[in-house]
């Protein structure tokens, strides 16, 4: 599966990238929201994992932009704890799932597998 990760924290980004590559996915990375939108257009990923607070464009705007596209692309939101309001907003805009930081890399890989299975059906 082709996965785009949008995250501005370098360490988190690379941890996610390594984990998902290990699981055999193709990973595209974006370090800010604007870059993420460009890459979504260019490479049409099967799944997007996005942080909320990022430079230029927030994760919420990425959710909104994804929902305006013809192809349905699922999106998992990465958020800090205690951000219930923002997570709720993300769901209203059309997010599919969320993971809170601190996160466990292995739990993330299980959730991603679920989306991978759904897309194969």
């Amino acid at each position: 599966m082709k996965i785009l990760i949008a995250e501005d924290d370098d360490l988190t980004l690379r941890t996610l990238e390594m984990r998902l590559k290990k699981d055999g996915h193709e990973v595209i990375i974006a370090r800010d929201g604007r870059d993420a939108l460009v890459r979504i257009e260019d490479s049409s990923p099967d799944l997007v994992i996005s942080d909320i607070m990022m430079p230029y464009t927030s994760g919420l705007e990425i959710v909104a932009a994804l929902r305006e596209r013809v192809k349905y692309t699922p999106i998992i939101i990465l958020s800090g704890m205690g951000q219930e309001d923002v997570v709720l907003e993300a769901f209203q805009l059309g997010a599919d799932d969320f993971i809170t930081k601190p996160f466990s890399p292995s739990e993330l890989s299980i959730r991603v597998r679920r989306f991978a299975m759904a897309s194969q059906k």
């Binding site: 941890t15 930081k101 601190p102 996160f103 466990s104 890399p105 292995s106 739990e107």
Partner: peptide, 15 residues
Amino acid sequence: QEILSAKKNMSGTAA
């Protein structure tokens, strides 16, 4: 600092 910032973002066995 590197270990701490990683620890802040990770949970489970990684932590």
